[in-house]
Design a protein around this nucleic acid. Sequence first.
DNA 1: ACTCACTATCCTAAAAATGGATAGCTTTTA
DNA 2: TAAAAGCTATCCATTTTTAGGATAGTGAGT
Lengths: 306, 306
Amino acid sequence: MRSAKLRDIDLNLLVVLEVLLSERHVSRAAERLNMSQPAVSRALGRLRESFNDPLLIRTATGFTLSSRAVLLQSELDGLLRDIERVIEPPQFDPATDDTLIRITGLDMEVGLYFPALVKRVRALAPNMRFEVVRQELDSFPMLERDEVHFSLSGLAPMSAEHSLHRRALEEMNVVCLLADNHALAHAKMSAEDYANTPHGLVSITGRGAGSMEQVLAAHGLKRDVALRLAGFTSVADFLEDSDLVFTLPKRLAERIAEGRRLLIRPLPEPLQAAPVKFYLYWHERYHHDPRMIWLREQFMEVIFTT
Amino acid sequence: MRSAKLRDIDLNLLVVLEVLLSERHVSRAAERLNMSQPAVSRALGRLRESFNDPLLIRTATGFTLSSRAVLLQSELDGLLRDIERVIEPPQFDPATDDTLIRITGLDMEVGLYFPALVKRVRALAPNMRFEVVRQELDSFPMLERDEVHFSLSGLAPMSAEHSLHRRALEEMNVVCLLADNHALAHAKMSAEDYANTPHGLVSITGRGAGSMEQVLAAHGLKRDVALRLAGFTSVADFLEDSDLVFTLPKRLAERIAEGRRLLIRPLPEPLQAAPVKFYLYWHERYHHDPRMIWLREQFMEVIFTT
DNA sequence: ACTCACTATCCTAAAAATGGATAGCTTTTA
DNA sequence: TAAAAGCTATCCATTTTTAGGATAGTGAGT
């Protein structure tokens, strides 16, 4: 058991010893260490006891080193430098860092936020690499298990996974996305209109999609979900020329509508739901990591300057 | 100034940290460290503060390591091993040690004691090398200046060179050495006979040779020193066929007399002086050095077993 | 709901470190 | 030769730190 020897000696004394050996002078050592002379003298006493060796030997002209002290001096310098290196906060240099950053999130959300981040980061940290990991039903366990550094999600952790941190990226209103030849495409949509038309719904996890149902219920209404999709990719294909309505966060809807025969309409006034929030999640284990701190900053810069 | 960072953290905590990181369990760590659980818990608290990082993160199944902790764990093992190596008493292995041992002493004394030592030591430590250094007028400053590891001397340090240690090797009576055709060679020598014959004296340092003078003075006598030599080598040559008497330690006299036309006679009864003592001297700086401790033991073995 | 396992905190007692003053020693200076 | 100066080690009272026992609080498993 290693501790046997290590715990016999006060390691803090090594710092004092190093200075003492190089100064060969208690008072000067005390000055360099910002300690009082008696304190250093007694530290020397403890060192002598610990090493069972006088270490510094009085001579007419001052102190000489014992043979043990000579040995120690030659080793201590490197040793203390090592200790310093280990305990010193790890320096992060974007220019040379080559960490592989793993991120996850729903395809659409990743497509919405990550490209700009990667572009910016790669400009500042050319050796940093990225990996977008396909997300499981629930991305929080992935953070928990250290499979990814970041997760992008609009959800909240269900259980008390308290080791997670998050930062809100953007609030986004929910809008209706429908075919441009939909019956409701050009008229003003009432709450009843909305409730009575068939709906499409993207639900990857099977949860978290119930907010509209709650809003409708508050008005004594309910809707019919005719199509349930596990991803955003084919939403447009299902929507064109159909009677479906998808209710989606605004920017996602815009993306999907782009170049397609689709229209975006606001939700009927009375049904205004709380805006959807997207969060960047990370695990406590990286909360103080300078690389990750820097990345989070970059993320925020990207989000709020574009 | 290095101390800046090193003195900010209690280095002893690193030992606790290492165990904590490998156990990921406060109570078990406490057990391994022979500390109470609260003590380790508080140590962890201090570590968290020092590193500004949670280090160990609670999860459902136990603790996980923070990224900093992972880094630390990979470094700590080697670091603590290094510390241990440095603070651990230097192991000395005669079989492999190749230290160059420097010794000094008067030629005669060296010839008397060192050959047997060297022989014995070389049998046990074949790689150890020796150098007999020509001694200055005074050998003590040579010890002081770390020019030799050992000095063989019958003298005592004159000033308060308190950093020296010594070990008495042998007490030796002083005898008279004279030509076998000397007038006093075969008669019983009285104190007056002794005082009235011309004397030879070996005095390398110019001091320490006054003991006979004191003994004579105590009896109201004084002697005439006709020849003063700076070494023992040519004593025999001066003595043969001369009227001189040398007063020398017994074994030295025997050496010198060997194969020469010389005789050894005891000192006249009333003049019995205190026996001469020879000492092995070494400097405080090597007092605790395992190599030198071993050598001193070997020396004593040689002296007292032959 | 209850038990079990574990960590963090509260409290008090014990231990350690600190700084000022100073004794004791040696060298240097007058 | 005596006085002064420089330095370390020790004494003392005080402050700071650390320790262990008891226990509250938390979450997991039954």
